[in-house]
Nucleic acid binder design. Structure first.
Length: 742
DNA sequence: AAAGTACGGGG
DNA sequence: GTGTACGTACTTT
């Protein structure tokens, strides 16, 4: 009876030399730093390993060794395995490297699972878990009991207090003149000036201490604000405390001991170069840089909580990761639970380049080319989470595709499930790791969508929407991971099986629709557009039900369009393209793809104009009403042009945004964007592949004079009116071209 | 005409 | 601590 019992939530788990620091929310406003001794481990396995050799090595590396067995992922066969436990989380990486040198990378398993995830998996104290812990007087956790289940849709979550920190105005603060800092908490905003460094740091820390938020949301905190503050503190040799770690207070290292920083990087994903600033992670408080977090931007705090709970990844790391990291961690967690040996995935940058021919693509989905034209009362039907649902339903996984146990020469000759078109089969005896990871996610997303629909208050609806959107994202990327050669649990044949089934199902949807007397207009991977004289919403719903029943795949009516335009290709106006269309649903909602307002590089003013045009067009009940609207729509274009000419449009609204795809000095073509990149570099701004730039188009002449960086405008510049008017005109024409013709 | 550059998707 | 596509559109050479 040496300890006390505390009930609350795990907020964060941070490895150190002795084990884990568990930041624990005991009650509102009370956060405890508990200690949990923890020793991470990894596994050696393989036919050539000898017990004596492993024991000798383990002794050299001061590891405990436990012989046992593990399941080889692809074959499902059991083999001897030795689990090596290191004495401290800090030693894991170094010991894994030694083991790799001694026994080769192929003998290593479960070797790149982060210590905090190992801790989550083995104790159940995953981030945001509700638990009851028994602690010693010094805060050491003696025992714990997890009180909730990450799969529980209704599990209670901790209340979180938030403060916001950003530089005044828009855009990257380093890409313009110095602007003051804004700190917002408890409904009040405070302005801080950088000029008097010592005072600035003092004021900021006072504000932060008074507000004492659990979460500090910044804009460009990783990229600008925190590094600048740290540099300022170092320059003035001033203390700088931004987390809640009391141990940091005694140090004079300007917060260096309290902020964990990892490296900045540029990386390519889905053909786009992304720059990610060095994460600045705090102790006892979360820092999320909203501008450096895809997931926070898309799904907010509820989405991050959801993914932390399911994946065991801590919140600050999750905020800076892709959905792929979460799904990958969940696959690993399930593999570990089942005793499957998780292959070691070495980081070998030189291998990245060589694999171009094996690269996976999102190709393989069935696409049609719709004939350009206008339609009324079109129904759009979408298969829900088509690819993950197929993986679940047809048991598609790297180890189940063309498995030996169901092959032609299998004992007893029991056949697997044939995959259409590609002459492959999936296992009919043993469920795959990937489908078993996905099935509960699909189910939870379905439940969350149901709660979203049923919720009455907008807040509650938003809460469920964000959570189900987070799950949607990990479902989307789970498919990409399946086909990526270097992914832990990837195999190209599994990827092909999914797209083959996808084509089969889309084709089936088309045929069922046609059989039922609908005219097939367009199909795109998991969606079909169909029409039928006199069909109402109810008829489309019935069709969706029929298709769902016959294909065994959930499909829903996305909506019935009042009018819908499949837009022509700009290069060749007589043909359509799969992904350029715009239409208005019966409820007035617009759905548009491939047009200016959907593009990031379109100036906000032009995008807003196109949106306004479509908003008006969405009021037209049918094509006749739309045609009658034409004079009014052209009038809108004229009004926008007048606002532009009269100087009523601020430069911010005219900014063209671009993301650099390479190092600034590597640009060959002398484009306006390249000239602005040079301008920014000349002003001392650091730009990387993936950095975003924004510029105003100004007058004609050489590239140098045709664009200016938004952040350094001095008021003497005037926008290139002719160019912007042309953009307005093109934005209008793009959505009106077919209406004019009719 | 060819090469360089950037965009979307999903909801 | 992620996952190097592909087709379209536009600009420069």
């Amino acid at each position: 009876m040496s300890g006390r019992s505390v009930t609350g939530w795990v907020l964060d788990v941070i490895p150190d030399a002795c084990g884990m620091t568990v930041w624990f929310r005991a009650k509102p406003g009370k956060t405890l730093a508990l200690k949990a001794p923890f020793r991470p481990s990894f596994t050696l396995a393989g036919g050539k390993l000898r017990d004596a050799g492993i024991r000798a090595a383990a002794q050299r590396w001061r590891c405990d060794v436990a012989p046992g067995e593990g399941i080889e992922f692809f074959s499902g066969k059991t083999m001897p395995a030795w689990t090596l436990t290191v004495t401290s989380p800090a030693l894991l990486m170094a010991t894994v490297r030694k083991a790799e040198n001694a026994f080769g990378p192929m003998a290593l398993f479960n070797a790149d699972v982060a210590p905090e995830q190992q801790f989550s998996f083995s104790t159940g104290l995953y981030p945001l878990a509700r638990a009851q812990v028994e602690c010693a007087p010094d805060g050491t956790i003696l025992s714990s009991r997890v009180l909730d289940d990450p799969w529980d849709v209704e599990a209670p979550w901790p209340a979180v207090t938030t403060a916001f920190l950003k530089v005044e105005g828009k855009g990257h603060p380093a890409h313009g003149r110095t602007r003051p800092l804004l700190f917002a908490a408890d409904g009040r905003t405070h302005v801080l000036l950088w000029e008097d460094g010592e005072r600035f740091l003092r004021d900021f820390q006072k504000l932060l201490a008074d507000a004492d938020p659990d979460l500090l949301v910044t804009e460009y905190g990783d990229d600008f604000i925190l590094p600048r503050m740290l540099a300022l503190a170092a320059m003035h040799r001033a203390p700088f405390l931004i987390g809640r770690d009391p141990r940091a207070a005694g140090r004079r290292d300007s917060g260096g001991g309290e902020i964990r920083r990892s490296r900045e990087r540029s990386y390519v994903t889905y053909g786009q170069v992304i720059f990610r600033a060095a994460p600045h992670m705090l102790s006892g408080r979360w820092h999320v840089d909203a501008r450096n977090s895809f997931l926070f931007g898309e799904t907010g705090l509820p989405g991050l909580f959801e993914l932390c709970r399911l994946s065991g990844i801590t919140l600050q790391r999750m905020a800076r990761s892709s959905p792929g990291t979460a799904i990958s961690a969940m696959e690993v967690a399930l593999a570990l639970r089942r005793g499957i040996l998780v292959p070691y995935k070495k980081r070998e940058p030189e291998e990245f380049k060589s694999g171009a021919d094996l690269v996976t693509t999102d190709k393989g989905g069935l696409t049609y080319l719709p004939r350009p034209g206008l339609h009324e009362k079109v129904g759009e039907l979408d298969f829900a989470s088509m690819y993950p649902s197929l993986m679940d339903r047809y048991n598609i996984s790297p180890e189940t595709i063309n498995c030996a146990c169901c092959g032609k020469r299998s004992p007893g000759g029991r056949p697997g499930t044939p995959v259409p078109e590609i002459g492959a089969h999936t296992c009919a005896r043993r469920r795959g790791l990937i489908p078993d990871t996905l099935a509960p996610i699909l189910e939870k997303r379905r439940l969350l969508k149901g709660r979203q629909k049923a919720a009455l208050a907008p807040d509650a609806r938003d809460f469920f929407r964000k959570r189900q959107t987070a799950l949607k994202w990990i479902l989307v990327v789970s498919f990409g991971f399946l086909g990526y050669k270097n992914a832990r649990f990837g195999r190209i044949e599994a990827h092909e099986a999914v797209t083959a089934w996808g084509r089969e199902k889309l084709l089936a949807a088309k045929e069922i629709a046609e059989r039922e007397g609908f005219f097939f207009l367009h199909g795109l991977t998991d969606a079909v557009w169909v029409e039928k004289e006199g069909a109402a919403e109810e008829d489309y719903r019935e069709l969706a039900e029929k298709i769902g029943r016959e294909t065994g795949m959930p499909i829903a009516l996305e909506g019935v369009y009042r009018w819908l335009a499949f837009l022509p290709s700009k290069r060749n106006p007589s043909v359509g393209v799969p992904n350029r269309f715009v239409g208005a649903f019966a409820d007035g909602e617009i759905k548009a793809r491939g047009i200016a307002m959907r593009r990031r590089d379109t100036p906000p003013f032009v995008a807003a104009f196109q949106r306004a045009l479509l908003a008006r067009m969405s009021e037209a009940e049918d094509l006749a009403a739309l045609r009658e609207m034409m004079p009014e729509l052209r009038e809108m274009e004229k009004d926008a042009a007048i606002a532009l000419r009269e100087g009523r449009v601020p430069p911010e609204a005219l900014a063209v945004s671009r993301r650099l795809s390479k190092e600034p000095e590597r640009y060959v073509a002398n484009t306006v964007a390249a000239a602005v990149t040079r301008e920014l570099c000349g002003r001392g701004v650091t730009l990387h592949p993936g950095s975003k730039i924004r510029y105003l188009l100004t007058g004609d002449g050489s590239a140098e004079t045709r664009g200016r960086a938004i952040g350094f405008l001095d008021g003497s510049e005037s926008p290139d009116l002719a160019r912007y008017e042309q953009m307005l005109h093109e934005a209008a024409d793009e959505v009106l071209c077919l209406v004019v013709g009719g």
